[in-house]
Nucleic acid binder design. Structure first.
Lengths: 140, 140
DNA sequence: CCAATAGATGAGAAGCTTTTGCATTCACTC
DNA sequence: GAGTGAATGCAAAAGCTTCTCATCTATTGG
């Protein structure tokens, strides 16, 4: 049940929070923007304001339920925190996002951070490129 | 002379363009925002509008004179293109940016991109962490 | 089960960075 | 040096996100 997750986060169990969490858990698309969530809610006939979507997503992030990423698009995307760490590769043309994990890179990153005096607490690595998808022109 | 670089980029040699390029070349800070540039121009008693700063920086980027990065701050930063590729590690607290190059990571990235069907034409890798700088609290 | 209260919500306004429209000004060509 | 197309400054607008505030609701205790 989503209720408990929300309660554990120290938040009241309200309709918007439950609906948004359900949505994130059932969405085909793992990486969604606040606007995406808002549109999905409208499509599901839920009367939830965009401001609330932003507020709830931010609270979920603070509670560790979701992760927020910026990428180079001008807006933020959120994804359900699945516990295991992973990095992202983002298509600069169509916005497609793939996840990956590479132990070698992890280790090198750690080494570089150590050398430069950085503590990778909020670990977040993004590669940007161009994907070879057939319909790689506009987001779809 | 900056004039030739600007001319080579297919742009008219105007005061704003020369001033901004000079500024980028002489600034202590390699990674500056449009706002930073604008403020530096004001400080130098140059009467150049913010819109022009954005336009010029964008043109410089298209011409390959500078590189633009977003990082997770809400605004973009620009740096003079020094030709040699490098990646960035950014402090999520104070915004400090360090550059690094790691051949192993380069190779692994290439491999990952290949496997996932991405072509790394616009190569851009960013690590986010927390730096251990003494005055790591607010940008400065 | 109801009242009290701290917190949550919706709608719109506001904030920030970046872009655009337009009249004026300027760099380059002849 | 005049003509022309590009460049500039200003203000307005756009796009994403946050804030304000009056209203409403989940939770707690009686």
């Amino acid at each position: 049940m989503e209720d408990q997750e929300i309660r554990n986060a120290g938040l009241k169990v309200t309709a918007p929070r439950v609906k948004i969490l359900e949505l994130l858990e059932n969405s085909d698309e793992r990486h969604v923007s606040a606007e995406d969530v808002y549109k999905m809610l409208l499509a599901a006939n839920e009367d939830i304001g965009l401001a609330t979507v932003y507020r709830v997503l931010t609270q979920f992030e603070e509670a560790g339920l979701v992760e927020k990423h910026h990428f180079e698009d001008g807006y933020s995307v959120f994804e359900l925190n699945k516990g295991k760490h992973h990095d992202h590769i983002v298509c600069i043309t169509c916005g497609r996002v793939e996840e990956f994990v590479d132990e070698t890179i992890e280790q090198r990153q750690q080494k570089i951070a150590d050398e430069l005096g950085f503590q990778i607490s909020e670990h977040d690595l993004v590669i940007y490129g161009k994907c070879m998808d057939d319909n790689c022109d506009r987001k779809g």
